[in-house]
Amino acid sequence: MSVHVDSAVTERWRPFAQGTGLVLASMALTGLVLLPIGINPIGAYAQILKGAFGSVNALTEDLVYATPIILTSLSVIIAFRCGLWNLGSDGQLYLGAIATVGLGFNRFGMLPPVLLPVMAVAAFAAGAAWAAVPAVLRLRFGASEVIVTIMMNFLAVTIATYLVGGPWASGITPATAPIVSAGFLPILVPGTRLNANFLVAIAAAALLSFVLRRTVFGYQLRTIGQNIDAARYAGMPVNKIRFVSFSCAGGLAGLAGFGEVAGIYHNLPNGLSPGFGYTGIVVALLARLNPLWAVIVAFALAALSVGSGGMQRAMGIPVSLVSILEAVLILLVLATRLLERRA
């Protein structure tokens, strides 16, 4: 019995051990790129660490950056656990941001306590509606959701660009006009950008974890993802659950857009997302589709990105180093999974 528990514990910590190992390995490989151009990789990484954890501001910035990534990774996870690929978190994030800004101008004169929740719900709904399109195309007509979601990412960015430059233009910056201050998310640590959407992301992760493990809906969702024939045999409403899960995936990404607008920018800037949706895929896979691990992995990747800013300032090494690092990491993750499947 004790053996059994032990192996269960090992199993539980496995994503952490593996994730750490893969991060270290990709740092070593990326270091090989740095050496020939005369940069000491250890120095560079030390600067990254300092940039990521060296001050209160750095730490809160890690969390600020992690927040949308957590939400997009949850978005990928809920769809994937149901057997569907959501590569459209980025687009769904933009839709959430658009809905947030649109309501944030408060043209309907909503009272302050009502405004924020309405914005959040609208962002979720907008992301969900954006995801519902590929869901219907997939479930009704068998169109690959992989392709449709990717295509719709471009569409979403284009719509945002149009709004920024057109109807909602501020006329000064490449961003829309600002939202009203009643639509600002509360700041958690004064003097930093860390806002309440971080708590929303954590709560979403906890909720999703609970739903997947303990509820009938989560059980059905997982069964469909693992063996759709068995789900049909057991009489589960397969298409309904796939639709709901994919829409929720869009909604979660929409919340990421809500946080970026209401918590950080207070408007919709051009190029709002530096690829949060795609980073979310990496996080989801690294976390082995576990919502709680996704929080930790998202934090680690966010710290890497934030730290790279410090490195650039201190050593003049371009931030794109981190892109290389991330790309190497993705390749290593995929390779590891492939080898595991073989074993």
Partner: peptide, 21 residues
């Protein structure tokens, strides 16, 4: 194999496959 069980689920989850509701 195909319809009756979910191979990657534990026995507990397979035991309630049909009656989970």
């Amino acid at each position: 194999h195909r319809d009756g069980v979910v191979l990657d689920f534990p026995l507990t989850d397979n035991a309630i496959l049909v009656d989970h509701q």
